[in-house]
Design a protein around this nucleic acid. Structure first.
Lengths: 211, 211
DNA sequence: CGCAAGATTGAAGATATTCAAACAGCGTGG
DNA sequence: CCACGCTGTTTGAATATCTTCAATCTTGCG
């Protein structure tokens, strides 16, 4: 295995590529996205440190989506074949990796519901809650304060909205005292309120039962 | 393992339940869905015979979504523990099951993109193409003709639309000669056209290379 | 300083929803 | 056999939400 650094915006894997490495994210944000016919882009997942970002492709012959660095990131990469070998020899590794992909799938289901059935305000609040909580659980600081290094364009691509509408939505959340923005960092001013607006519960994240 | 029959609408697993069985679908349609705060429902996947419908929950402690029979269905169920035991002892079973969950995850990514970035017409066409092709690959007949036993309400829940809008959208596709409807079955009148409107390519389904 | 990328705002327009009503198909019971 | 009721479909009109277009403003940075 080896440590690799990526620049903001740099592609880690492109759609159609054959995955060779599996990567564990130690620092920075990474996201996956797909491009649709009219040129639109949809971000399908966001990753925080301690996520595996390429197990999804481990058993598939080619990538069905792009993986890109959002910020400067550090990844630990392991050749797919080696990882599979270890997984096959050690049931616990196998189960852990598999479980990771299942949790990811659960998050994707929630995204489908979020994008399909919640309006812009609720949808945006929901996603802020998710990122906040996943960062907190990864030991990256309290849920109330975190850097959200995404442009409004990128947020729109993640939420199925336009950048303009994201702007108005964030403003609305801020006006209601739910969040505070300064530059590109977000502070949750009212966690319960945000959670309520976002119709958010953390069940789907399948956090292991805390000790 | 045992064979179980379900009535249309019957729940196979409910959100919050502890999954005990893993099921292989031999006959009928099954779908998964989540309920959001305002009572809205979002279908997050549709299953055709030859799909495993409960591997997603196999390593998770409780179900994060509901699984429901769309039509009368036949499932072969295997206790989760037994299946895991077999998977741990046989690498090929392990890989096959895992791969199945990864393909499902890929389909969910496409759904996110479909709902997030395509308009109603394109979105609807895309889903028709997906179901048509998955049925065909499962040996259930040519892609051009298949029963679509979903109500427009259910279609709406799958597409993130209202039933009313689904109705207008289907009419529009029919008026353009892309599909023909009679009762609740759909015929694809112009596969290439539908595929084009739906911005559909089958890459994300990860069909094994045909012999 | 001056550029470039991103954020913000307004106005107009498109897309989808909501509400309401009418209609069709189908199984049940008289 | 037909009436009834139920579920689902279809249609229209009004409305809400989100997008598009375009301009202005802000911020970071060479």
């Amino acid at each position: 295995m080896s440590v690799r650094e990526f620049e903001p915006g740099q592609y880690i894997l492109r759609e159609g590529d054959r995955p060779r490495y599996c990567a564990y994210l130690t620092d920075g944000y990474v996201y996956r996205h797909k491009i649709v016919g009219d040129g639109g882009r949809q971000i399908v997942s966001i990753h925080v440190p301690s996520d595996f970002v390429d197990v999804q492709n481990i058993l598939l012959d080619y990538a069905d989506h792009n993986i890109q660095a959002l910020t400067a990131t550090t990844l630990i990469t392991v050749p797919v074949d080696d990882l599979m070998k270890v997984a096959m020899e050690h049931g616990s590794v196998n189960r852990a990796l598999w479980r990771e992909t299942l949790v990811e799938a659960s998050i994707m289901r929630e995204w489908i519901a979020n994008i399909g059935r919640r309006d812009a305000r609720s949808r945006t609040a929901h996603m802020l809650c998710e990122v906040a909580l996943r960062r907190e659980k990864a030991g990256l600081g309290a849920r109330e304060t975190f850097d959200l290094p995404m442009t409004q364009e990128q947020l729109g691509d993640a939420l199925g909205l336009t950048a303009v509408h994201v702007n108005r939505t964030l403003k609305s959340l801020e006006n209601d005292g739910l969040i505070v923005r300064s530059k590109r960092s977000v502070t949750v001013a009212d966690w319960n309120g945000l959670q309520s607006v976002g119709d958010f519960t953390s069940n789907y994240l399948h956090f292991p039962p805390s000790a």
